[in-house]
C-alpha cells in the first residue's frame, strides 16, 4: 500500500458516500444516471468475486464489502425507493453498447483465460467506460447539481491517483499491470473535460453548466 493508492481509495469511498447521502438526504436522484450506477454495481460484482477466497487484508476485504453494499444500495434507492425522482428521459445511454464490446474485449485481451480472470478483466474495462451514461446525461441536461459535480470530481480523482500509484509501484516494486493501467488512463481521460469545467466553474462557486 502507498499513499497514492490510499488517497485514491479514500477518494473513491468519498465519491460513493457523497452520492448515497445526496440521494438519501434529498430523497431524490435527479441528475444522477441510474445506468452508470448499475454498471458500477456490475463492476464491483465481477471484480470482487474473490472476496471470500483470496484474503489480502482486513482493509481490502472491508473496502470491497463497503463498495458492494453502497453500490447496490444506490441502485436500490434509485430504481425502487426514489424511483419517482429518477430522470429516465435523460438517462438514455444504451448500456449494451458498453457491456457487449467490453465483454468481447475481456475475452480477447486478458492475462489468463480463466473465468475469474476474464471477469476481473471485464470489470476493469467496464469501469473505464461506466461513467459515460452519467456524462452523457449531464451533456443532455446541460447542467449538474453542485453535489453531483463533487461526486464526479472525487470519482475521477480516484483513478487518476491510481495511475500515480502504478507509476510509484513500477519504480519501487517493478510491479505493473498493463490492462489496469491502460483502462485506468482511458477512464481518467474521459473525465478531463469535466475536470476542466469543475475547476474553472464549480470551484469558483458557479453552477456546472455545459455549453449547450
Amino acid at each position: 500500500m502507498n499513499i497514492f493508492r490510499l488517497l485514491g481509495d479514500l477518494s473513491h469511498l468519498l465519491a460513493i458516500i457523497i452520492l448515497l447521502l445526496k440521494i438519501w438526504r434529498t430523497r431524490s436522484c435527479a441528475g444522477v444516471s441510474g445506468k452508470s450506477q448499475i454498471l458500477f454495481a456490475l463492476v464491483f460484482t465481477t471484480r470482487y468475486l474473490d472476496l471470500f477466497t483470496n484474503f489480502i487484508s482486513m482493509y481490502n476485504s472491508a473496502m470491497k464489502l463497503i463498495y458492494l453494499v453502497c453500490s447496490y444500495a444506490t441502485v436500490f434507492l434509485m430504481y425502487f425507493k426514489f424511483k419517482a425522482t429518477y430522470d429516465s428521459n435523460h438517462d438514455t445511454f444504451r448500456m449494451e453498447f458498453l457491456v457487449v464490446p467490453v465483454g468481447g474485449l475481456a475475452f480477447l485481451v486478458n492475462h489468463d483465460f480463466t473465468p475469474l480472470e476474464i471477469l476481473w478483466t471485464f470489470s476493469i474495462y467496464l469501469e473505464a467506460v461506466a461513467i459515460l451514461p452519467q456524462l452523457f446525461m449531464i451533456s443532455k441536461t446541460g447542467e449538474a447539481e453542485t453535489i453531483t459535480s463533487h461526486y464526479l470530481f472525487a470519482l475521477g480523482s480516484y483513478r487518476a491517483l491510481y495511475i500515480v500509484n502504478w507509476v510509484f509501484r513500477f519504480y519501487t516494486e517493478g510491479f505493473f499491470d498493463l490492462i489496469a493501467i491502460v483502462a485506468g488512463c482511458v477512464q481518467t481521460i474521459l473525465y478531463c473535460d469535466f475536470f476542466y469545467l469543475y475547476i474553472t466553474k464549480v470551484l469558483k462557486g458557479k453552477q456546472l453548466t455545459l455549453p449547450a
Binding site: D50, I56, Y67, D177
Partner: peptide, 10 residues
C-alpha cells in the same frame, strides 16, 4: 514480470 494474479488492489 511479476505475478499478475496478485490482485491486491481494489
Amino acid at each position: 514480470t511479476l505475478d499478475y494474479n496478485r490482485k491486491d488492489e481494489l
